[in-house]
Amino acid sequence: MIYRGRGTETVALKDANLSVAEGEFISLIGPSGCGKTTLLRIIADLVQPSSGAISIAGKNPRQARLEREYGYVFQAPALLEWRSVLKNVILPLEIMGFPKEKRQQRASQLLDMVGLKQFHKQYPWQLSGGMQQRVSIARALAFDPKLLLMDEPFGALDEITREAMNLELLRIWEETKKTVVFVTHSIPEAVFLSTRIVVMTPRPGKIEKIIPVTLPHPRNTDTRESKAFFDLATEVREALRDVH
């Protein structure tokens, strides 16, 4: 992937080969500028790669996007401020032409899953940052896509909220059996959530190492304190350190 500016070229991503199995939770981790977000945006067909091919369940990204194969969770909640929480979750269902009764039922169900059922009438500004991001996750899951693309969804949250959200996300993933590609800066987050961690390096962005995470499921707060967790975190940290 090459970004062309005024007389300059930036190679954002090079030699990125990765295959993700169904039901996997893959984390992309790496320093800023290593092309994690770009890779995610290429998968989502939000940008087109300069060269290379991507296949999502046998379709190219454009087809996958048009057939609504994935849900995307952005760094910021990106909620529509004029819609109530419920209406925000309904938005994709509206666009995708779900019947009216089903929209309502499905959105309520998802809000219930992220634990925000009683807030369905509020406007986004009335919610905390963590709650807004939960709405955003519910919205991404609303139309039941097979693939969930998450771009540092908890990057703007404080450590305490982030850990709670991690637990929540893990529960949702186990419940829904989605395939997740998750971009993060945080080593503990990656280790705690993933089945595999993809370590990326910058300039040009490429995949440095893929670390399988062997921690048993279900994971909980105790997992964070286990020796295996620390060993994996150290492995990731060392892989990242090799880069510099």
């Binding site: 939000l46 995307y72 910021a76 004029w82 509206e94």
Partner: peptide, 29 residues
């Protein structure tokens, strides 16, 4: 309009008129 929201609408493969009616118009009120 927040570019993220435009990306979001793109990820939904929303029609430009839908983007106008559901995003741009309410945001301009």
């Amino acid at each position: 309009i927040d570019p993220l929201i435009l990306d979001l609408m793109k990820s939904y493969a929303a029609h430009p008129l839908e983007v106008f009616w559901k995003v741009r118009f309410p945001a301009a009120v």
